[in-house]
Amino acid sequence: MTIVAFDPLPALLGGVLIGLAATLLLWLNGRIAGITGIAAGAMEERGGERWWRLLFLAGLIVGAGAMYVTWPARATLHSGLPLWAVLGAGLLVGFGTRLGGGCTSGHGVCGLGRLSPRSLVAVITFVLTAVITVFVVRHVLGVAS
């Protein structure tokens, strides 16, 4: 793997925007910015609780669209994996986040910021699982990216 023309600006900007969004949601709405919980609530809730959740999710989609329009070369992902594998991985991630009671945004961004021991354990589990998954996919299954 070779990193070519590394530019930290987009990652820095993205991190600042994620932190700002999480902070504003907590200050203004008293809610944690865990995408899994927000998405589940958007499907289950009714009334005012549902609207802010739908607007938050719409903002994620609009933000991704703005990224694609602004920096199309940076918004293109090439995993080298077949579509069935990407879709299967997405379903497994969704199942795991519900099983684990939250996702990387809820535990990693918001939970660690609140010094939650539960979130620390969850984030360590996420990272170890990712390391094991990469090892298995690359070295056991022989799939290269």
Score class of each variant (00 low, 15 high):
Ala73Val: 13
Val93Gly: 01
Val69His: 07
Glu49Gln: 15
Asp7Pro: 10
Val62Thr: 12
Pro82Gln: 08
Leu87Gly: 06
Leu81Ala: 01
Val16Asn: 10
Leu25Gln: 11
Thr76Glu: 08
Leu13Arg: 14
Gly15Val: 03
His78Ala: 01
Leu9Ala: 04
Trp52Leu: 09
Ala75Met: 15
Gly59Ile: 02
Ala5Glu: 12
Gly19His: 08
Ala73His: 06
Gly65Ser: 03
Ala22Glu: 05
Trp84Pro: 00
Glu45Pro: 01
Gly63Asp: 06
Leu9Ile: 13
Leu9Pro: 08
Leu57Pro: 05
Glu49His: 03
Val62Leu: 12
Ala66Lys: 09
Ile38Thr: 15
Leu83Asp: 08
Gly37Leu: 09
Gly30Pro: 15
Ala40Lys: 12
Gly48Thr: 02
Ala5Asp: 06
Pro82Cys: 01
Arg31Lys: 15
Trp84Ser: 05
Arg46Thr: 14
Gly41Asp: 09
Val93Gln: 02
Phe56Tyr: 15
Glu44Leu: 09
Leu12Asp: 15
Phe6Cys: 06
Ile32Pro: 00
Arg46Met: 08
Gly48Gln: 07
Ile32Asn: 13
Ala58His: 04
Pro8Arg: 02
Leu83Cys: 01
Ala21Thr: 15
Ala33Cys: 15
Gly47Asn: 01
Pro82Val: 10
Ala22Lys: 10
Ile18Trp: 14
Arg46Tyr: 08
Ala66Pro: 09
Leu81Arg: 00
Trp51Phe: 08
Val69Asp: 02
Ser79Arg: 03
Thr23Ile: 00
Thr23Glu: 05
Ala21His: 14
Asn29Lys: 15
Ile32Lys: 03
Ile35Ser: 07
Leu55Tyr: 12
Val93Leu: 11
Leu24Gly: 03
Asn29Ile: 01
Glu44His: 12
Gly30Ile: 14
Leu92Asn: 11
Trp52Pro: 00
Trp27Leu: 15
Met43Thr: 02
Leu54Arg: 13
Thr23Lys: 10
Gly65Ala: 06
Trp27Asp: 03
Ala73Asp: 14
Gly90Leu: 02
Leu60His: 15
Ala33Pro: 07
Ala21Trp: 10
Thr36Glu: 04
Ile35Met: 10
Pro72Phe: 05
Leu26Cys: 04
Leu9Trp: 14
Leu28Asp: 11
Leu87Pro: 05
Ala21Tyr: 11
Val93Phe: 14
Thr23His: 10
Leu54Val: 15
Gly47Ser: 02
Ala39Trp: 10
Gly63Ile: 12
